[in-house]
């Protein structure tokens, strides 16, 4: 049986798609952590985090900095309003929700803006 010949995708299109996948490791975002309620305070609360990281990485980073036990709940919010999806990137969040030149991340041991 003859197979239908598939028109090829133009190389420029494949290059375009590749370029949108490129991650720039030098692009860093300043994230400012703010504890809420009785959450432990951080001595240093501003960190440069790679823009391509997912928010999940921010959650893990904060837990490590605080030495927060794996099973204990910790709630993270942007601009004291919502919890982003963990698979969203820091870059996407920064573009939409930056305050001045930071991304403000609030953290709490109990649901704060449930």
């Amino acid at each position: 049986m003859a197979e239908a010949i598939q028109p090829a995708i133009a190389e420029e299109v494949l290059n375009a798609l590749d370029s949108y996948k490129q991650k720039d490791p030098t692009n860093k975002i300043i994230v400012r952590f703010k504890g809420v309620g009785n959450a432990p305070i951080m001595k240093q609360n501003m960190y440069k985090i790679s823009a391509q990281n997912r928010f999940q990485a921010v959650i893990q980073f904060l837990r490590k900095e605080l030495g927060w036990p794996a099973g204990d709940p910790l709630f993270l919010y942007i601009n004291s309003t919502f919890s982003p999806a963990p698979d969203d990137t820091v870059l996407n969040l920064y573009k939409s929700f930056a305050t001045e030149s930071f991304l403000i991340v609030n953290y709490s041991t109990t649901p704060a803006w449930g």
Binding site: I78, T81, A85
Partner: peptide, 26 residues
């Protein structure tokens, strides 16, 4: 680690409500 959230309906509801809030903020 790649699915990010647990499979419970409650986790799905929380994610949904947060998406609504995020959209409201945008």
């Amino acid at each position: 680690d790649k699915l990010f959230l647990s499979s419970t309906i409650e986790a799905c509801k929380q994610a949904f409500m947060n998406q609504l809030k995020e959209a409201d903020f945008v």
